[in-house]
């Protein structure tokens, strides 16, 4: 399979998986919309009415943080498990392993379109309005997608080697959730050094802050933070890709031992 055929296959397979799901679960599509809404409702309730935190625009603030984060965490979890899931196909012919995580990321991307549509509707209804700064959504979303693919490829190596790693991924996502500024604002960190460190080490913090900058504050993205997200994306992508290539046989044997 050459590169173009791989891309075409990844897209076709992702669409087929969506179709297969719609055949089985009546609520499956709906869940992709319901889940972020329920999460946000829960968070909103806890922070607004139990802890008395957050101002006027706290709901928009939460939604814009949570929805990109859910995109990341769901895609990466699905991508990391993808090779194990596809034992059947792998046992029949030589297929480059990178295809499977990318199929799951592409599938999640299609589902994410729904969640983002809701987000945009909400932002518009809340009266934030469209500005020229919205153009920045394009590079930000593309880089986020690249990061998702990269981390999925990288993690899929480990989950295939040892299923225990799934637990570690859950912990990792939990850690990310608390350090990415979903229900608190990273810009409130007083120490500039600490803030810069967080933004460079945790690309999710930069991404979430980026979406808020565009949709809520109508300001420019921070170029330095965005470049470091891009570097993370390229780094994980290349590393994951080459590990999957180099250890392809070891991974196949692991699947069938």
């Amino acid at each position: 399979m050459n590169f173009r055929q791989s891309l075409s296959f990844i897209n076709t397979q992702a669409l087929m998986k969506l179709k297969a799901q719609s055949n089985t679960l009546v609520l499956s599509y709906l869940w992709w919309i319901l889940e972020p809404i329920l999460y946000v409702a829960l968070f909103y309730f806890v922070f607004k009415f139990v802890l008395y935190r957050g101002g006027e625009d706290f709901l928009a603030f939460l939604l814009i943080g949570k929805i990109p984060f859910l995109w990341f965490s769901k895609s990466v979890s699905a991508g990391a498990n993808s090779i194990v899931e596809n034992r059947g196909l792998i046992s029949q012919r030589v297929i480059p392993k990178y295809i499977f995580p990318l199929v799951n990321c592409q599938e999640a991307l299609y589902k994410q379109v729904l969640a983002f549509t809701i987000l945009i509707c909400f932002v518009l209804i809340s009266g934030y309005g469209v500005t020229i700064k919205w153009m920045q959504l394009i590079p930000l979303t593309l880089i986020t997608y690249l990061l998702i693919c990269g981390v999925s490829l990288f993690f899929s190596v480990f989950v295939t080697l040892a299923p225990d790693f799934k637990v570690a991924i859950q912990m990792f996502m939990m850690g990310l959730m608390f350090t990415s500024g979903i229900f608190w604002d990273v810009n409130l960190i007083q120490d500039d050094m600490l803030k810069a460190l967080l933004m460079h080490i945790n690309p999710l913090a930069s991404i979430i802050d980026g979406y808020r900058k565009i949709l809520m504050y109508k300001t420019d993205l921070n170029f330095h933070y965005l470049s470091s997200v891009f570097l993370w994306a390229i780094f994980t992508f290349l590393l994951g890709f080459s590990l999957l290539h180099k250890f392809s046989n070891t991974l196949t044997r692991k699947l069938f031992s």
Binding site: Q5, S8, F9, T12, M16, K19, N23, S91, Q92, I95
Partner: peptide, 29 residues
């Protein structure tokens, strides 16, 4: 290509879709 029983099919998809996937995996556009 290796044909084994029951493996490599997505049970939720139709025979047509599964055949399409098989063909593409064998290098067809």
């Amino acid at each position: 290509s290796l044909l084994t029983l029951g493996l490599g099919f997505n049970n939720q998809l139709s025979g047509r879709d599964n055949a399409l996937i098989s063909c593409m995996l064998n290098g067809f556009s």
